[in-house]
């Protein structure tokens, strides 16, 4: 059997693929963060809690209303996105004129409150959520068994990333958005409702987080901490990619997933640290991030 650095090649390919799958989650989550930061200049620390809410709403839809995974994929982002809209209207919108730090602290606080409430209600040990029957089972790729569901996650994540990029870069509404980021007063003067656009953008970013939460529900235990554990890595992804850069967050998300996956083979103990080592190096050499504009 061929070996690469003492690791059997099939195992290495398997790990590359798994890294890509984890990268899909990072990309999807950092995409929402990048959209919100890029358009609203808000560092959305509630993102992890909103990801977690997506998973909990999926669980609640199934447990209380009998609505399964496919409904959840549609409804959970809408429900959690509506929560985001409410949050933006009542709280975040008041902080646009202040330093980033205020938005960060507000959203961080809201995130802790949401997690605390969920923990009080449902406990910390998690709730079961099964993979939908249509996506159970696995493919034999020769070098590893690939669960169908994980393949589905990668495909859906790539589609969602592409769609978001297209909306922002190639459509009229996207161009309004980008213009509003540069000069809100001027865009407003052309008769475009900038505050409404901001609200909907935040709602959309939150909906992306909830969407990722629904995707995660069948493979990770649905528990109040699930977002808090991921969000720190995702922030590192956004910083490395360049704050606010959509392409940067997507590419970096997948890239770091692969780097982390490889670290899990060669030095598993360091797999939680490697992303931050990369972040430190990138910040030292390119402070604006790999794809950011200085």
């Amino acid at each position: 059997m061929d070996e690469i650095f003492g690791i059997p090649a099939p195992l290495l390919f398997g790990q590359l693929l798994l890294g890509l799958i984890n990268g899909a989650f990072y990309a999807l989550l950092s995409l929402g963060l990048a959209v919100i930061f890029g358009m609203l200049n808000v560092i959305n620390f509630t993102h992890g809690a909103q990801f977690m809410l997506g998973a909990f709403v999926a669980w609640a839809l199934l447990s209380f209303l009998g609505l399964g995974y496919w409904w959840a994929l549609l409804l959970a982002p809408l429900i959690v996105g509506a929560f985001g809209v409410l949050l933006e209207r009542t709280m975040i919108s008041r902080l646009y004129k202040l330093d980033h730090l205020y938005g960060l602290l507000l959203t961080f606080g809201v995130g802790l409150i949401v997690e605390g409430l969920v923990r009080n209600e449902f406990g910390s040990s998690g709730l079961p959520y099964r993979i939908p029957a249509e996506l159970q089972g696995s493919w034999d790729l020769g070098f590893m068994f690939m669960p169908i569901y994980r393949g589905w996650v990668v495909v859906v994540a790539i589609v969602a990333c592409l769609a978001t990029w297209l909306v922002i870069e190639k459509t009229k509404i996207g161009s309004y958005l980008r213009a509003a980021t540069e000069n809100p007063a001027l865009v407003q003067a052309f008769g475009i409702n900038v505050p409404l656009m901001m609200t909907l953008t935040y709602g959309a970013g939150v909906a992306l987080a909830a969407f990722a939460g629904v995707l995660a529900a069948p493979i990770y235990s649905v528990n109040p901490q699930m977002g808090a554990n991921l969000i720190i890595i995702v922030f590192a992804v956004v910083v490395i990619g360049g704050m606010g850069s959509i392409l940067g967050s997507v590419v970096t998300g997948f890239g770091l997933g692969i780097i982390e996956g490889l670290t899990k083979v060669f030095w598993p103990e360091a797999s939680a640290t490697v992303i931050f080592v990369v972040m430190a190096i990138v910040l030292l050499t390119r402070p604006a991030g790999l794809f950011g504009r200085a």
Partner: peptide, 15 residues
């Protein structure tokens, strides 16, 4: 694996 920062175990499972 690093505790408590690990959420995804697929890599270790494949190993």
């Amino acid at each position: 694996y690093p505790f408590p920062q690990t959420t995804d175990f697929s890599s270790f499972v494949v190993q």
